[in-house]
Design a binder for these strands. Structure first.
Lengths: 213, 213
DNA sequence: GTCTATACAGGGATAGAC
DNA sequence: GTCTATCCCTGTATAGAC
Protein backbone atom coordinates (compact mmCIF):
# COMPACT_ATOMS: atom_id res chain seq x y z
CA UNK A 1 0.00 0.00 0.00
CA UNK A 2 1.31 3.39 0.92
CA UNK A 3 5.05 3.54 1.35
CA UNK A 4 6.62 4.04 4.72
CA UNK A 5 8.10 7.46 5.29
CA UNK A 6 11.54 5.98 5.75
CA UNK A 7 11.56 3.91 2.58
CA UNK A 8 10.31 6.86 0.56
CA UNK A 9 13.43 8.67 1.69
CA UNK A 10 15.66 6.14 -0.01
CA UNK A 11 13.96 5.46 -3.31
CA UNK A 12 15.48 8.52 -4.99
CA UNK A 13 12.91 8.60 -7.74
CA UNK A 14 12.62 11.92 -9.55
CA UNK A 15 9.73 14.09 -8.42
CA UNK A 16 7.03 13.41 -10.95
CA UNK A 17 3.98 14.80 -9.20
CA UNK A 18 2.37 16.06 -6.02
CA UNK A 19 1.73 12.56 -4.74
CA UNK A 20 5.37 11.69 -4.65
CA UNK A 21 6.54 14.40 -2.25
CA UNK A 22 8.28 13.80 0.97
CA UNK A 23 11.76 13.00 -0.20
CA UNK A 24 13.57 16.00 1.16
CA UNK A 25 13.78 17.11 4.80
CA UNK A 26 11.85 20.33 4.44
CA UNK A 27 9.10 18.70 2.41
CA UNK A 28 8.76 15.85 4.88
CA UNK A 29 8.29 18.26 7.75
CA UNK A 30 5.91 20.45 5.85
CA UNK A 31 3.84 17.47 4.82
CA UNK A 32 3.59 16.29 8.40
CA UNK A 33 2.66 19.77 9.58
CA UNK A 34 -0.19 19.88 7.08
CA UNK A 35 -1.52 16.54 8.29
CA UNK A 36 -1.34 17.61 11.92
CA UNK A 37 -3.02 20.96 11.41
CA UNK A 38 -5.71 19.50 9.20
CA UNK A 39 -7.17 17.39 11.97
CA UNK A 40 -7.00 20.32 14.37
CA UNK A 41 -8.81 22.64 12.00
CA UNK A 42 -11.35 19.93 11.22
CA UNK A 43 -12.12 19.34 14.88
CA UNK A 44 -12.84 23.02 15.26
CA UNK A 45 -14.64 23.83 12.04
CA UNK A 46 -16.11 20.60 10.62
CA UNK A 47 -15.89 19.15 7.14
CA UNK A 48 -17.30 21.94 5.00
CA UNK A 49 -15.47 24.75 6.69
CA UNK A 50 -12.13 22.98 6.69
CA UNK A 51 -11.15 24.51 3.39
CA UNK A 52 -7.69 24.36 1.95
CA UNK A 53 -7.49 28.07 2.61
CA UNK A 54 -8.37 27.58 6.28
CA UNK A 55 -5.71 24.90 6.67
CA UNK A 56 -3.17 27.02 4.85
CA UNK A 57 -3.94 29.96 7.08
CA UNK A 58 -3.44 27.84 10.21
CA UNK A 59 0.04 27.01 8.95
CA UNK A 60 0.90 30.38 7.49
CA UNK A 61 1.02 29.31 3.89
CA UNK A 62 -1.15 29.89 0.86
CA UNK A 63 -3.72 27.27 -0.06
CA UNK A 64 -1.95 26.61 -3.33
CA UNK A 65 1.09 25.39 -1.42
CA UNK A 66 -0.90 22.47 -0.03
CA UNK A 67 -1.32 21.06 -3.47
CA UNK A 68 2.40 20.47 -3.73
CA UNK A 69 1.86 17.73 -1.16
CA UNK A 70 -1.66 16.49 -1.83
CA UNK A 71 -3.33 16.29 -5.18
CA UNK A 72 -6.82 17.06 -3.92
CA UNK A 73 -8.58 17.95 -0.70
CA UNK A 74 -9.99 14.44 -0.68
CA UNK A 75 -6.50 12.93 -0.86
CA UNK A 76 -5.37 15.12 2.01
CA UNK A 77 -8.20 13.94 4.24
CA UNK A 78 -7.63 10.33 3.27
CA UNK A 79 -3.96 10.66 4.12
CA UNK A 80 -4.87 11.93 7.57
CA UNK A 81 -6.94 8.80 8.11
CA UNK A 82 -4.22 6.56 6.70
CA UNK A 83 -1.70 8.01 9.09
CA UNK A 84 -3.97 7.58 12.10
CA UNK A 85 -4.57 3.97 11.08
CA UNK A 86 -0.83 3.42 10.87
CA UNK A 87 -0.36 4.86 14.33
CA UNK A 88 -3.17 2.77 15.76
CA UNK A 89 -1.74 -0.38 14.19
CA UNK A 90 1.70 0.35 15.61
CA UNK A 91 0.22 0.96 19.05
CA UNK A 92 -1.76 -2.28 18.86
CA UNK A 93 1.38 -4.20 17.96
CA UNK A 94 3.30 -2.68 20.83
CA UNK A 95 0.46 -3.81 23.04
CA UNK A 96 1.25 -7.43 22.26
CA UNK A 97 -1.22 -10.16 21.37
CA UNK A 98 -4.78 -9.67 22.55
CA UNK A 99 -5.94 -11.56 25.62
CA UNK A 100 -9.25 -13.14 24.71
CA UNK A 101 -12.15 -11.03 23.51
CA UNK A 102 -11.47 -7.45 24.32
CA UNK A 103 -13.59 -5.43 21.97
CA UNK A 104 -14.85 -3.05 24.62
CA UNK A 105 -11.29 -1.94 25.28
CA UNK A 106 -10.74 -1.42 21.56
CA UNK A 107 -13.83 0.74 21.41
CA UNK A 108 -12.68 2.81 24.36
CA UNK A 109 -9.36 3.46 22.70
CA UNK A 110 -11.20 4.60 19.59
CA UNK A 111 -13.17 7.00 21.70
CA UNK A 112 -10.03 8.36 23.27
CA UNK A 113 -8.95 9.43 19.83
CA UNK A 114 -10.40 12.86 19.36
CA UNK A 115 -14.08 12.78 18.42
CA UNK A 116 -12.97 15.04 15.61
CA UNK A 117 -11.11 12.16 14.03
CA UNK A 118 -14.12 9.89 14.29
CA UNK A 119 -16.28 12.58 12.73
CA UNK A 120 -13.80 13.01 9.90
CA UNK A 121 -13.90 9.29 9.27
CA UNK A 122 -17.67 9.39 9.19
CA UNK A 123 -17.65 12.22 6.68
CA UNK A 124 -15.24 10.39 4.42
CA UNK A 125 -17.25 7.16 4.60
CA UNK A 126 -20.32 9.14 3.60
CA UNK A 127 -18.47 10.40 0.55
CA UNK A 128 -17.27 6.91 -0.25
CA UNK A 129 -20.88 5.72 -0.40
CA UNK A 130 -21.72 8.15 -3.17
CA UNK A 131 -21.07 7.86 -6.89
CA UNK A 132 -17.83 9.32 -8.18
CA UNK A 133 -15.51 8.94 -5.19
CA UNK A 134 -13.62 5.82 -6.18
CA UNK A 135 -10.48 6.67 -4.24
CA UNK A 136 -12.30 6.99 -0.96
CA UNK A 137 -14.41 3.95 -1.69
CA UNK A 138 -11.38 1.79 -2.39
CA UNK A 139 -9.75 2.98 0.81
CA UNK A 140 -12.70 2.09 3.00
CA UNK A 141 -13.49 -1.20 1.28
CA UNK A 142 -9.93 -2.23 2.01
CA UNK A 143 -10.03 -0.81 5.52
CA UNK A 144 -13.15 -2.74 6.46
CA UNK A 145 -11.75 -5.93 4.99
CA UNK A 146 -8.71 -5.42 7.14
CA UNK A 147 -10.81 -4.70 10.22
CA UNK A 148 -12.91 -7.82 9.70
CA UNK A 149 -9.78 -9.86 9.16
CA UNK A 150 -8.39 -8.63 12.47
CA UNK A 151 -11.66 -9.47 14.20
CA UNK A 152 -11.57 -12.97 12.70
CA UNK A 153 -8.12 -13.60 14.17
CA UNK A 154 -9.24 -12.52 17.60
CA UNK A 155 -12.39 -14.64 17.39
CA UNK A 156 -10.40 -17.71 16.34
CA UNK A 157 -8.05 -17.29 19.27
CA UNK A 158 -11.05 -16.85 21.55
CA UNK A 159 -12.64 -20.02 20.22
CA UNK A 160 -9.45 -21.97 20.86
CA UNK A 161 -9.29 -20.55 24.36
CA UNK A 162 -12.86 -21.69 24.92
CA UNK A 163 -14.21 -18.23 25.62
CA UNK A 164 -16.33 -18.11 22.46
CA UNK A 165 -19.55 -20.00 21.90
CA UNK A 166 -18.35 -22.79 19.60
CA UNK A 167 -21.40 -22.65 17.31
CA UNK A 168 -20.77 -19.08 16.19
CA UNK A 169 -19.71 -18.68 12.53
CA UNK A 170 -16.48 -16.69 12.52
CA UNK A 171 -17.00 -14.71 9.31
CA UNK A 172 -20.43 -13.41 10.17
CA UNK A 173 -19.32 -12.69 13.72
CA UNK A 174 -16.34 -10.68 12.50
CA UNK A 175 -18.57 -8.39 10.45
CA UNK A 176 -20.88 -8.14 13.44
CA UNK A 177 -18.09 -7.08 15.79
CA UNK A 178 -17.05 -4.23 13.51
CA UNK A 179 -20.65 -3.23 12.87
CA UNK A 180 -21.35 -3.06 16.59
CA UNK A 181 -18.37 -0.83 17.30
CA UNK A 182 -19.26 1.45 14.40
CA UNK A 183 -22.91 1.71 15.28
CA UNK A 184 -22.42 2.24 18.99
CA UNK A 185 -19.83 4.94 18.45
CA UNK A 186 -22.14 6.76 16.04
CA UNK A 187 -24.87 6.88 18.68
CA UNK A 188 -22.35 7.96 21.28
CA UNK A 189 -20.95 10.72 19.10
CA UNK A 190 -24.44 12.08 18.55
CA UNK A 191 -25.44 11.86 22.18
CA UNK A 192 -22.91 11.31 24.95
CA UNK A 193 -25.62 9.95 27.23
CA UNK A 194 -25.52 6.72 25.22
CA UNK A 195 -23.36 4.24 27.08
CA UNK A 196 -21.43 2.56 24.32
CA UNK A 197 -19.17 0.75 26.74
CA UNK A 198 -22.12 -0.98 28.32
CA UNK A 199 -23.40 -1.90 24.87
CA UNK A 200 -20.11 -3.42 23.88
CA UNK A 201 -19.83 -5.37 27.13
CA UNK A 202 -23.29 -6.78 26.52
CA UNK A 203 -22.30 -7.79 23.02
CA UNK A 204 -19.19 -9.54 24.31
CA UNK A 205 -21.23 -11.45 26.84
CA UNK A 206 -23.54 -12.66 24.08
CA UNK A 207 -20.56 -14.22 22.34
CA UNK A 208 -19.46 -16.16 25.38
CA UNK A 209 -20.36 -19.80 25.95
CA UNK A 210 -23.10 -20.49 28.52
CA UNK A 211 -21.71 -20.61 32.07
CA UNK A 212 -21.06 -24.25 32.99
CA UNK A 213 -23.01 -24.42 36.24
CA UNK B 1 -42.00 16.03 16.67
CA UNK B 2 -42.55 17.27 13.14
CA UNK B 3 -46.15 18.11 12.42
CA UNK B 4 -48.20 15.83 10.26
CA UNK B 5 -49.11 17.19 6.84
CA UNK B 6 -52.78 17.08 7.77
CA UNK B 7 -52.41 19.05 10.97
CA UNK B 8 -50.34 21.68 9.18
CA UNK B 9 -53.28 22.08 6.85
CA UNK B 10 -55.57 23.08 9.70
CA UNK B 11 -53.44 25.41 11.76
CA UNK B 12 -54.24 28.38 9.56
CA UNK B 13 -51.22 30.36 10.62
CA UNK B 14 -50.27 33.14 8.23
CA UNK B 15 -47.35 32.35 5.96
CA UNK B 16 -44.46 33.95 7.74
CA UNK B 17 -41.48 32.33 6.12
CA UNK B 18 -40.06 29.62 3.90
CA UNK B 19 -40.55 26.93 6.51
CA UNK B 20 -44.26 27.46 6.76
CA UNK B 21 -45.24 26.59 3.19
CA UNK B 22 -47.53 23.78 2.27
CA UNK B 23 -50.86 25.36 3.01
CA UNK B 24 -52.10 26.04 -0.49
CA UNK B 25 -52.56 23.58 -3.33
CA UNK B 26 -49.89 24.85 -5.68
CA UNK B 27 -47.34 25.27 -2.94
CA UNK B 28 -48.06 21.81 -1.59
CA UNK B 29 -47.52 20.22 -4.97
CA UNK B 30 -44.38 22.19 -5.70
CA UNK B 31 -42.95 21.33 -2.34
CA UNK B 32 -43.60 17.65 -2.86
CA UNK B 33 -42.09 17.80 -6.31
CA UNK B 34 -38.91 19.29 -4.89
CA UNK B 35 -38.65 16.53 -2.27
CA UNK B 36 -39.19 13.82 -4.88
CA UNK B 37 -36.68 15.17 -7.36
CA UNK B 38 -34.09 15.82 -4.68
CA UNK B 39 -33.72 12.17 -3.82
CA UNK B 40 -33.56 11.27 -7.49
CA UNK B 41 -30.85 13.79 -8.22
CA UNK B 42 -28.97 12.75 -5.10
CA UNK B 43 -28.99 9.08 -6.07
CA UNK B 44 -27.44 10.02 -9.37
CA UNK B 45 -24.98 12.71 -8.39
CA UNK B 46 -24.16 12.27 -4.69
CA UNK B 47 -24.13 14.83 -1.91
CA UNK B 48 -21.71 17.43 -3.20
CA UNK B 49 -23.06 17.56 -6.72
CA UNK B 50 -26.68 17.73 -5.67
CA UNK B 51 -26.67 21.50 -5.73
CA UNK B 52 -29.76 23.61 -5.43
CA UNK B 53 -29.11 24.57 -9.03
CA UNK B 54 -29.06 20.92 -10.12
CA UNK B 55 -32.33 20.20 -8.32
CA UNK B 56 -33.91 23.33 -9.76
CA UNK B 57 -32.81 22.33 -13.22
CA UNK B 58 -34.38 18.88 -12.82
CA UNK B 59 -37.68 20.60 -12.03
CA UNK B 60 -37.39 23.49 -14.42
CA UNK B 61 -37.08 26.35 -11.95
CA UNK B 62 -34.22 28.47 -10.76
CA UNK B 63 -32.34 27.57 -7.59
CA UNK B 64 -33.66 30.66 -5.87
CA UNK B 65 -37.22 29.38 -6.19
CA UNK B 66 -36.42 26.45 -3.93
CA UNK B 67 -35.82 28.78 -1.05
CA UNK B 68 -39.51 29.69 -0.95
CA UNK B 69 -40.02 26.17 0.39
CA UNK B 70 -36.82 25.38 2.26
CA UNK B 71 -34.67 27.82 4.13
CA UNK B 72 -31.38 26.11 3.38
CA UNK B 73 -30.04 23.16 1.46
CA UNK B 74 -29.56 21.42 4.77
CA UNK B 75 -33.23 21.89 5.68
CA UNK B 76 -34.27 20.49 2.31
CA UNK B 77 -32.23 17.35 2.80
CA UNK B 78 -33.51 16.94 6.36
CA UNK B 79 -37.07 17.25 5.12
CA UNK B 80 -36.44 14.46 2.62
CA UNK B 81 -35.34 12.24 5.48
CA UNK B 82 -38.26 13.28 7.65
CA UNK B 83 -40.71 12.38 4.93
CA UNK B 84 -39.13 8.97 4.34
CA UNK B 85 -39.29 8.30 8.07
CA UNK B 86 -42.96 9.21 8.08
CA UNK B 87 -43.62 6.84 5.19
CA UNK B 88 -41.68 4.04 6.87
CA UNK B 89 -43.58 4.54 10.10
CA UNK B 90 -46.91 4.43 8.31
CA UNK B 91 -45.88 1.26 6.49
CA UNK B 92 -44.79 -0.34 9.74
CA UNK B 93 -48.13 0.48 11.34
CA UNK B 94 -50.03 -0.98 8.42
CA UNK B 95 -47.94 -4.09 8.89
CA UNK B 96 -49.48 -4.66 12.31
CA UNK B 97 -47.65 -5.60 15.48
CA UNK B 98 -44.32 -7.35 15.10
CA UNK B 99 -44.17 -11.07 15.65
CA UNK B 100 -41.26 -11.69 17.98
CA UNK B 101 -37.79 -10.53 17.09
CA UNK B 102 -37.65 -9.65 13.46
CA UNK B 103 -34.73 -7.31 13.04
CA UNK B 104 -33.38 -9.05 9.97
CA UNK B 105 -36.60 -8.29 8.14
CA UNK B 106 -36.41 -4.66 9.21
CA UNK B 107 -32.90 -4.44 7.87
CA UNK B 108 -33.94 -5.96 4.55
CA UNK B 109 -36.69 -3.40 4.17
CA UNK B 110 -34.15 -0.67 4.83
CA UNK B 111 -32.01 -2.08 2.09
CA UNK B 112 -34.91 -2.16 -0.31
CA UNK B 113 -35.13 1.58 0.06
CA UNK B 114 -32.81 2.99 -2.54
CA UNK B 115 -29.19 2.86 -1.46
CA UNK B 116 -29.21 6.52 -2.41
CA UNK B 117 -31.47 7.26 0.54
CA UNK B 118 -29.20 5.38 2.92
CA UNK B 119 -26.22 7.27 1.57
CA UNK B 120 -28.02 10.57 2.04
CA UNK B 121 -28.77 9.63 5.62
CA UNK B 122 -25.12 8.78 6.17
CA UNK B 123 -24.03 12.15 4.75
CA UNK B 124 -26.43 14.01 6.98
CA UNK B 125 -25.35 12.08 10.07
CA UNK B 126 -21.76 12.97 9.26
CA UNK B 127 -22.72 16.64 9.19
CA UNK B 128 -24.63 16.27 12.44
CA UNK B 129 -21.45 15.03 14.13
CA UNK B 130 -19.61 18.23 13.31
CA UNK B 131 -19.72 21.58 15.09
CA UNK B 132 -22.23 24.12 13.85
CA UNK B 133 -24.99 21.89 12.53
CA UNK B 134 -27.41 22.02 15.43
CA UNK B 135 -30.51 21.42 13.34
CA UNK B 136 -29.21 18.18 11.89
CA UNK B 137 -27.85 17.11 15.23
CA UNK B 138 -31.17 17.65 16.98
CA UNK B 139 -32.96 15.70 14.27
CA UNK B 140 -30.71 12.67 14.56
CA UNK B 141 -30.50 12.69 18.34
CA UNK B 142 -34.28 12.54 18.38
CA UNK B 143 -34.38 9.98 15.60
CA UNK B 144 -32.04 7.58 17.38
CA UNK B 145 -33.95 7.98 20.62
CA UNK B 146 -37.06 7.02 18.75
CA UNK B 147 -35.35 4.06 17.10
CA UNK B 148 -34.06 2.77 20.41
CA UNK B 149 -37.46 3.23 21.95
CA UNK B 150 -39.02 1.13 19.19
CA UNK B 151 -36.37 -1.53 19.70
CA UNK B 152 -37.09 -1.57 23.43
CA UNK B 153 -40.77 -2.26 22.81
CA UNK B 154 -39.99 -5.15 20.51
CA UNK B 155 -37.48 -6.58 22.99
CA UNK B 156 -39.97 -6.36 25.84
CA UNK B 157 -42.58 -8.20 23.82
CA UNK B 158 -39.97 -10.79 22.92
CA UNK B 159 -39.03 -11.26 26.56
CA UNK B 160 -42.67 -11.80 27.50
CA UNK B 161 -43.02 -14.31 24.69
CA UNK B 162 -40.01 -16.14 26.02
CA UNK B 163 -37.94 -15.72 22.86
CA UNK B 164 -35.40 -13.42 24.46
CA UNK B 165 -32.70 -14.47 26.89
CA UNK B 166 -34.16 -13.22 30.17
CA UNK B 167 -30.85 -11.91 31.54
CA UNK B 168 -30.40 -9.35 28.78
CA UNK B 169 -30.73 -5.70 29.86
CA UNK B 170 -33.30 -4.09 27.59
CA UNK B 171 -31.81 -0.61 27.33
CA UNK B 172 -28.34 -1.72 26.35
CA UNK B 173 -29.78 -4.29 23.99
CA UNK B 174 -31.93 -1.67 22.26
CA UNK B 175 -28.89 0.48 21.48
CA UNK B 176 -27.11 -2.65 20.33
CA UNK B 177 -29.87 -3.60 17.92
CA UNK B 178 -29.80 -0.21 16.23
CA UNK B 179 -26.01 -0.16 16.19
CA UNK B 180 -25.89 -3.55 14.52
CA UNK B 181 -28.29 -2.57 11.77
CA UNK B 182 -26.40 0.68 11.16
CA UNK B 183 -23.00 -0.91 11.14
CA UNK B 184 -23.93 -3.85 8.95
CA UNK B 185 -25.63 -1.67 6.39
CA UNK B 186 -22.59 0.59 6.20
CA UNK B 187 -20.38 -2.38 5.38
CA UNK B 188 -22.91 -3.63 2.87
CA UNK B 189 -23.22 -0.26 1.17
CA UNK B 190 -19.47 -0.11 0.77
CA UNK B 191 -19.15 -3.67 -0.47
CA UNK B 192 -22.14 -5.70 -1.60
CA UNK B 193 -20.25 -8.92 -0.96
CA UNK B 194 -20.83 -8.39 2.76
CA UNK B 195 -23.82 -10.48 3.80
CA UNK B 196 -25.65 -8.19 6.18
CA UNK B 197 -28.63 -10.47 6.37
CA UNK B 198 -26.50 -13.31 7.68
CA UNK B 199 -24.95 -10.94 10.21
CA UNK B 200 -28.33 -9.83 11.46
CA UNK B 201 -29.59 -13.41 11.72
CA UNK B 202 -26.53 -14.30 13.78
CA UNK B 203 -27.18 -11.34 16.05
CA UNK B 204 -30.80 -12.40 16.54
CA UNK B 205 -29.72 -15.90 17.45
CA UNK B 206 -27.38 -14.50 20.10
CA UNK B 207 -30.34 -12.83 21.75
CA UNK B 208 -32.37 -16.02 21.97
CA UNK B 209 -32.50 -18.17 25.08
CA UNK B 210 -30.47 -21.41 25.01
CA UNK B 211 -32.39 -24.26 23.42
CA UNK B 212 -34.09 -26.29 26.18
CA UNK B 213 -32.80 -29.72 25.23
C1' DG C 1 11.65 22.22 -4.65
C1' DT C 2 8.86 25.34 -2.51
C1' DC C 3 5.75 28.79 -2.61
C1' DT C 4 2.80 33.15 -4.04
C1' DA C 5 -0.31 35.30 -7.07
C1' DT C 6 -3.91 34.91 -9.85
C1' DA C 7 -7.75 33.16 -12.64
C1' DC C 8 -11.77 30.23 -13.26
C1' DA C 9 -15.99 27.66 -12.70
C1' DG C 10 -19.22 26.56 -9.56
C1' DG C 11 -21.50 26.68 -4.86
C1' DG C 12 -25.22 28.73 -1.22
C1' DA C 13 -27.33 32.70 0.24
C1' DT C 14 -29.77 36.94 -0.66
C1' DA C 15 -32.11 41.43 -2.49
C1' DG C 16 -35.24 43.30 -5.33
C1' DA C 17 -37.82 43.34 -9.89
C1' DC C 18 -42.04 41.54 -11.86
C1' DG D 1 -44.13 32.61 -6.67
C1' DT D 2 -40.53 33.01 -9.48
C1' DC D 3 -36.89 35.34 -11.72
C1' DT D 4 -32.23 37.70 -12.46
C1' DA D 5 -28.24 39.71 -10.61
C1' DT D 6 -25.01 39.75 -7.21
C1' DC D 7 -22.12 38.59 -3.09
C1' DC D 8 -18.51 35.95 -1.10
C1' DC D 9 -16.73 31.51 -0.66
C1' DT D 10 -14.91 27.08 -2.49
C1' DG D 11 -11.53 23.49 -5.05
C1' DT D 12 -8.71 23.35 -8.84
C1' DA D 13 -5.22 24.92 -12.17
C1' DT D 14 -1.31 27.45 -13.98
C1' DA D 15 2.55 30.83 -14.33
C1' DG D 16 6.38 32.38 -12.53
C1' DA D 17 9.35 34.18 -8.37
C1' DC D 18 13.20 32.56 -5.68
Amino acid sequence: MQAQESSALVTGKPATGPGSRGRYPKGVLRRQEILDRTIEVFAELGFESTSLRAIGEAIGVSHAALRRYFETREELFLEVLREKDRQALAAARADGTPHGIDFARHLDSFASQTPGLMALRHSMIARALEPGNETSQAFFVERYESLRSGAREILLLAREAGVLRPDIPIDAAAALVIATMDGLSTQWLLDRRVDMHEGMILFESLLQPPRPE
